[in-house]
Design a binder for these strands. Structure first.
Lengths: 345, 345
DNA sequence: GAGGGCGTTGGGAACGTTCCCAACGCGAGG
DNA sequence: CCTCGCGTTGGGAACGTTCCCAACGCCCTC
């Protein structure tokens, strides 16, 4: 009985009148096959609609041709953060070209995060892309120990040793604040990102650098910590206005926080940019739709995703080529940013 | 040499002084193990940090515990469409609870789409979630023939036979247009979605239904086809204003198109809602941030994703339970929508 | 005291592929 | 005519797991 299932390599071999190995060779593009045999095999494959079973293949090659993209959902909702969408697009694009699959892992809370290591241990992926890593995060270290190739979006701190791709956070921030200074603003507040992430620190550092470069003393009381969310941005703006009603500009470390700041400014009847100039960071879709349209620092998010994927694939093939000679210098790249001036400054 | 790799089930068995099978039983929670043996096995697993190889498991069980989510990137950029982000969140949430992995497949163009069938054939996933399917799309049929459980987000047409989850598109649209009529608008235009998708047709149908219910004749010349994009919305608005300058309201079949319409209305100096009232569909994050904030029909996108995942998992386990008795009635669900009134009406 | 049953156990086979290596055929060279 | 070598070929083993089934030991019952 048993209307047999899908064809296997054996079925194809029988149909083509050759051995398993020959079929395997044809599939994997080996040269060691006579063109006669190759033709017969290809014909059999076509007739039987044969598709290799990648699970079986993965078992013996120890490769799955899949990578994981880990996104912490807790701190930044995928929906409100166009950043992740753009990143996914970039990653996916670079992977598609190589036939690598993308496994998306949204991590909601700590318990899911704890399961993550085990889940990645099960060898379903060849490598991991990590986004939004905090300085004290243990996951990257664990992955490294496990020998699972890993590339970060943004480094954990200045002496990151894993592979990573990052935007020029301090450079971009310097440019943004420099622009405000050029326009004559002197009381420039900043709403920082999470300060346990390098991206938060670096953008704050840029705020300082720009002041120093312009010879304008930076007033530390104009710094308010945010958390990259819209609500956080709004709240920070409120605190700042309360504490320093004389501020005449704000550099928010993300567009989303800038949106929150704009809302609070409007609520308090402050004109933008007449009373207070606002600059964001990222140039997400949001920035074009705020009122007024937001001056911001464009970071090439999609490009960042593409680059991460490319580097990860390189690490993976390097690893499989010489598993022993592992220390290999991990690639670390910083992508340039660009100031986009709109009507909020 | 050979600092041996990660432990296998055999290593654990040896360490615990039992056979492979017993270890397997413990891992899979079988009752047929003495508590003594179970303890020894668990101890060994802990000591060796053993994690089962899911690829090997998948080979014999013919299950991968992964599902694919296919998103056509061409027609609606993941970034600008918060819809997909919310959907992913819902899907991912429902899957996480069951330890199922999510494979994201962004399909950029037709060539990638052609590869898709083969890629899904390789048996790396147990089921497929399909988004944004056009009426003439061949993919769902192919998947069905392959015996790969499939659930659609939105049906292809009114007599869809595959499993699907959809928002109450016609109901929501009826409500939206009914709301405009109640507010005294009488020249209500509509910017439709792609009309080769049921979601486009149903929302247009709602526009008609509302007119009929209110006893107001629907002027077919107030219909303009859009494509769910912001640019498309803007362009449609321009055509409508040119053709029917006397219109006093617009129902756009998506928030994104409503945003485009708002831009065009502003450009032409029409007040919203004073001159023209605008209603969107979806209640994405966008809607709260437009100027003025957008009245829209909320569809529970995250819930939609969750439900799709749940149904798919059910189909998968049903399929593995009795592969022969396949015809099984596919589940089809419609989720209710809700009108959210803001300041654009 | 022998037989039967049940709770437990473990070895063999299989899943579908790749890789290693031995073997085959055939032409060329000695 | 035999041998060598090279271009091809295919069978066996392995990857790490689950499932089938036979076997083991022990207790209970007759």
């Amino acid at each position: 009985m048993a209307g047999n299932g899908r064809p296997t390599i054996k079925t194809v071999a029988a149909r083509a009148g050759v051995g398993r190995t020959t079929v395997s060779r044809v599939i994997n593009g080996s040269e060691l096959v006579s063109s006669d045999a190759r033709d017969r095999v290809l014909a059999a494959i076509e007739e039987l609609q044969y598709v290799p079973n990648s699970v079986a293949r993965g078992l013996v090659t120890n490769r799955t041709n899949a990578v994981a993209l880990v996104i912490p959902e807790s701190e930044s909702r995928l929906g409100s953060e166009p950043f992740f969408a753009a990143l996914i697009r970039g990653v996916s694009g670079a992977l598609a070209a190589t036939g690598t699959q993308l496994q998306l892992m949204l991590v909601r809370d700590q318990s899911e995060r704890d399961q993550l290591t085990a889940s990645l241990q099960t060898r379903r992926v060849d490598g991991v892309l990590l986004v939004s890593v905090h300085a004290h995060d243990r996951l990257p270290g664990q992955l490294d120990e496990m020998g699972l190739p890993t590339v970060l979006a943004g480094r954990r701190d200045a002496q990151e040793h894993l592979g990573y791709v990052d935007s020029d956070n301090s450079g971009g921030a310097t440019q943004a604040v420099g622009h405000l200074l050029e326009r004559g603003r002197r009381r420039i507040a900043t709403i920082t990102g999470a300060l346990d992430m390098d991206v938060g620190c670096s953008r704050l550092a840029g705020w300082r650098t720009a002041h120093r470069a312009a010879g304008v003393p930076a007033d530390e009381s104009l710094i308010e910590a945010g958390d990259f969310t819209e609500e956080g941005g709004q709240q920070a703006m409120r605190s700042l206005l309360e504490r320093s009603p004389d501020l005449d500009a704000v550099f928010a470390a993300s567009d989303l926080m800038a949106v929150g700041a704009l809302a609070e400014l409007r609520r308090q009847g402050r004109g933008v940019p007449s009373d207070v100039a606002v600059v964001g960071f990222e140039d997400s879709v949001l920035a074009r739709h705020t009122n007024p349209p937001l001056t911001t620092v464009r970071q090439p998010v999609e490009e960042l995703g593409r680059t991460m994927a490319r580097i990860l694939l390189q690490e993976i093939s390097a690893r499989t080529a010489s598993p022993a000679t592992e220390p290999a210098s991990h690639q670390q790249l910083t992508l340039p940013t660009e100031l986009v001036v709109r009507e909020s400054t």
